[in-house]
């Protein structure tokens, strides 16, 4: 651990409202302690802006421990910045050098309109979950928890998919503005588990259809996987593609619901 102080220049996207024009503004950020997190650096810059009578930079953030998925911005062209498997809040200033210019932009996608500065609206993700990202299990109707064994490998893989924090970096990094990784992670989580089988085909159909109402398509660039703070694999996208095709040809009235 080597505590240092560095001087930075920030170029930050400022946009006063959803319908307003935005522009980049340049700010000097001297005296930044390298022990700070990236968001703490922005806190410091904001404090100085307030002191100068300028409105602080708006950005979404909450838990600051990399799990709530609120924060997210494009730092030097990369979603969540230069460190792999790391959300913006867990990025620390020791990853930057004295004299660096850092360009900070909001996540860009047609489905993620800017609300203000670096704050974007990601509620299209909620619409995808509402379309089918659940298992219908009304409270009280559940069987005994150990009634259905789930092979450990299956449970572990389902967890790998379920680890998604819904931050939207996958969409932001995708040149197509596609939400395949987000959608596939939820489809895979639920479609892998025995509890998810009854709705397996309707789920994938409904979620993909909703996704495509807002987002682009997958060109297999793998940028999403590279920026995902949870390292979710694009194998889940392949799994979703397969289930989506199968869903088209399942005769849901007659055929077995399994496999």
């Amino acid at each position: 651990m080597s505590e240092q102080v560095i001087n930075l220049t920030l170029k930050v996207w400022r946009q006063p409202g959803p319908d307003a024009e935005g522009e980049f503004k340049e700010y000097d950020a001297p005296g930044i302690n390298t022990e700070m997190s990236f968001l703490e650096m922005l806190d410091v810059v904001n404090e100085r802006l307030i002191e100068r009578g300028e409105e602080p930079i708006a950005f979404d953030h909450d838990c600051r421990e990399g799990i709530c998925g609120s924060c997210g911005m494009i730092i030097n062209g990369q979603a969540h910045g230069p460190m792999r498997n790391t959300a913006t809040c867990q990025l620390h200033m020791r990853k930057f050098a004295d004299g660096d210019t850092i360009v900070i932009e909001p996540f860009r996608a047609t489905a993620f309109p800017v609300i203000r500065d670096l704050v974007v609206n990601r509620s299209a993700f909620d619409r995808i979950i509402e379309a089918g990202g659940y298992i219908t299990a009304p409270t009280g109707s559940a069987p005994e928890a150990n009634l259905i064994p789930v092979p450990k490998e299956v449970a572990d893989t389902a967890f790998d998919a379920a680890a998604c924090i819904g931050c939207g970096a996958c969409v932001a990094a995708c040149p197509n503005g596609a939400a395949q990784l987000f959608t596939a992670a939820k489809v895979a989580h639920l479609n892998l588990l025995p509890q998810g089988q009854p709705e397996r085909w309707t789920r994938v159909q409904a979620m993909v259809d909703e996704m495509e109402a807002h987002f682009g398509s997958c060109s297999n660039h793998r940028e999403c996987e590279a920026v995902c703070p949870k390292g979710i694999s694009i194998d889940f996208i392949a799994m979703m593609n397969r289930d989506y095709l199968k869903a088209q040809f399942k005769n849901r009235r007659l055929a077995s619901q399994s496999g």
Binding site: Y134, I135, A137, T139, G140, S141, A142, P143, E144, A145, N146, I148, P149, V150, P151, K152, A155, D156, A158, F159, A162, H189, L190, L193, Q195, G196
Partner: peptide, 22 residues
């Protein structure tokens, strides 16, 4: 006791043992 039943039915991926039980 009921909470665990409910969450498993919803697909919460709790840690499991090799036999598939919680």
């Amino acid at each position: 006791v009921e909470i665990i039943d409910q969450c498993v039915a919803q697909g919460v991926p709790f840690a499991r043992e090799y036999g598939g039980l919680l």
